[in-house]
Design a protein around this nucleic acid. Structure first.
Length: 568
RNA sequence: CGGUGAGUGGCGCAGCUUGGUAGCGCACUUGGUUUGGGUCCAAGGGGUCGUAGGUUCGAAUCCUAUCUCACCGACCA
């Protein structure tokens, strides 16, 4: 490709509404342009990258035994009414009507359509297992699209759906897909982690997310520094901290005045927040004979609402009780609540439950207890894992300690079980002639998001640094003053023709521009290799070969360039 | 939806307080100059100042409504 016949579309200035680096660079490098909030056009350079990612995903899906299909973007509402998601999905689902005033929607995902399809086409256990996938544009009417391509409303997703007679077969395919995902991200050249995850509203039991590690990630990933263990912080089990046993001291009540927060009380009493507990009051579920539940966490720990919501005593989703109701029930407001003589059922986090001689609110205004002990001072209580795991915690797998890093979710796989197949009565006849509902798995990859995530992970102050496998071009040909020098032009044209003949994707910068302009544009675009052709080196019959990532320069004899590029 | 801020040539911005008929940088066009890291000089094209209404002799500027966008929050496979 010649730049003079291409739409390079690079920009010097940073668009003012682009916050994250991938968004800025995708605009500046001429990859995408915004049409409206969360909606982007893909320019040639961006599309080249997107197509490479798509192709890698497609090849690995095919290798894993999945079969490509394509389903409609516009879906009839009645399928979603069958699964119950027409009501459940909320305003993120863009609903539309056709000319006959019938309800339709723009597909945010395709469980319903594929389940209906398989139900029609597959009648016998002999046709199973079956794994179908598509790579297609999805639409989700996000409350707040942000970070450019990272969280757009329209985006390309690879979604696969597998169908099985039993959960063992589902698990086999799940493991195959897990491996296929690792293969995809290995080939993409990205630093990533598969992490144990919450399945969220899509349902199902077993689930893993695949995260590209990057500072700008929206998710916190906890992982062991000494094993393969990695989990989304939403889910990572927080192990109880063990303390050496202390002689219990006498319970005392102290005046703490207006000091209410953990920090304020700790400062006042000159103690470590780790020796205090905080008390949070949440609404109770219908399982328990109480309106509210008191949750006790160590002072420096954070409540994990997802874990809390899974406790049978606690209403799901977690809802905090407002202060007036707390005062009515306990007799004091926020800031001096505590487990001693607490009239509500108590659930203590594991770490809090191991504390000895700790500080807590006294359930009286402006008072705290010091040297509280569970067995002596507090009645019955439950112990549960309620808190967020933090850096430095022992890994729940038993090996190593926890580190926390930011990740961008680019893949998510689920064992759905029969959630959709049951709702839509999707089954086959077994070998005994009985109708049996199928087990399903579903497997998503955010294809467009991968492009942004790759940039978040691979850039410098000059621009993008593409991993070789997804770069828009393999090599850039940069002639110095070609429009003045016949020799440079001759060599450049010859190399261009030879590289094309070898099947190398090459961008030939044949614009009448100054060298600095060309260097800057090529670096911004992130092409992994450059060949610089200048009078200076032609006397020795050489050109310069330069790596974008390392800046490493190699002088090459003109005769060797093509084979060198093909091999590197 | 709540909070904050912004809409002025393709992009980034000034002008608005104190109304008088729109300007700067980048980009673009032409000519010259320069040529291994975003040259320099000159000339030029391009804007119903988000939209609608109002006040006024006169509105980018003041008032009202409305739309759009961004950031923070709630939400989310």
């Amino acid at each position: 490709m010649r730049t003079s016949q291409y739409l390079l579309a690079t920009q010097k200035e940073i668009p003012n509404d682009a916050e994250v680096i991938s968004h800025q660079l995708m605009l500046r490098a001429g990859m995408v342009r915004k049409l409206a909030s969360g909606l982007y056009s893909w320019l040639p350079t961006g599309l080249r990258v997107l197509n490479k990612v798509t192709q890698i995903v497609r090849e690995e899906m095919n290798k894993a035994g999945a079969i490509e299909i394509n389903m409609p973007v516009v879906q009839p509402a009645d399928l979603w009414q069958q699964s119950g998601r027409w009501e459940a999905y909320g305003p993120e689902l863009l609903r539309i009507k056709d000319r006959h005033d019938r309800d339709f929607l723009l597909g945010p995902t395709h469980e319903e359509v594929v389940t209906a399809l398989v139900n029609n086409e597959v009648n016998s256990y002999k046709q199973l297992p079956l794994n179908l996938y598509q790579i297609q544009t999805k639409f989700r009417d996000e409350i707040r699209p942000r970070f450019g391509i990272m969280r757009g409303r329209e985006f390309v997703m690879k979604d696969a759906y597998s169908f099985h007679l039993d959960s063992e077969c589902l698990n086999n395919t799940y493991q195959t897909m897990h491996q296929a995902y690792c293969n995809v991200f290995d080939r993409l050249g990205l630093e990533y982690r598969p992490v144990i995850a919450d399945s969220g509203s899509i349902g199902g039991a077993v689930s893993h997310e695949f995260h590209v590690l990057a500072e700008s990630g929206e998710d916190d990933i906890a992982f062991s520094n000494a094993s393969d263990y990695a989990a989304n912080i939403e889910l990572a089990e927080a192990v109880a901290e063990q303390y050496s046993s202390q002689a219990s001291r006498e319970l005392k009540i102290v005046d703490t005045g207006e000091h209410k927060t953990i920090d304020a009380v700790s400062n006042l009493l000159k103690i470590d927040p780790k020796t205090t507990v905080k008390t949070l009051i949440v609404k109770a579920s219908e399982e328990v004979d109480a309106q509210m539940i008191a949750l006790i966490l160590r002072g420096d720990h954070q409540l994990n609402e997802i874990k809390a919501a899974k406790h049978e005593w606690i209403a799901e989703p977690v809802e905090f009780v407002d202060e007036k109701e707390v005062i009515a029930a306990v007799g004091c407001g926020f800031g001096t609540l505590g487990p001693v003589k607490m009239p509500l059922p108590i659930i203590a986090d594991r770490s809090a439950a191991n504390l000895q001689n700790f500080v807590c609110g006294a359930n009286q205004a402006e008072k705290h207890y010091i040297d509280t002990n569970w067995d002596r001072d507090i009645g019955q209580f439950e112990v549960a894992d309620l808190r967020n795991i933090v850096a430095g915690d022992p890994s729940p797998c038993g090996t190593g300690t926890i580190e926390i890093r930011k990740g961008i979710e680019v893949g998510h796989i689920f064992q759905l079980g029969d959630k959709y197949s049951k709702a839509m009565n999707c089954g086959v006849l077994t070998d005994t002639g009985k109708h049996q509902v199928l087990q399903m798995g579903c497997y998503g990859i955010g294809v467009t998001r991968i492009v942004a995530a790759a940039i978040e992970q691979n850039h410098d102050k000059y621009g993008i640094i593409w991993p070789e496998n997804i770069a828009p071009f393999k090599v850039a040909l940069i002639p110095m003053n070609m429009h003045k020098s016949h020799r440079v032009k001759e060599v450049a044209e010859k190399l261009y023709a030879d590289l094309i003949a070898q099947g190398v994707e090459v961008l030939f910068d044949d614009r009448k521009e100054r060298p600095g302009v060309m260097f800057a544009d090529i670096e911004l675009t992130g092409i992994p290799n450059s060949i610089v052709i200048g009078e200076r080196n032609l006397d020795n019959n050489e050109v310069e070969f330069k790596k974008r990532a390392s800046g490493e320069k190699t002088m090459l004899s003109i005769d060797n360039v093509v084979s060198f590029v093909a091999e590197n």
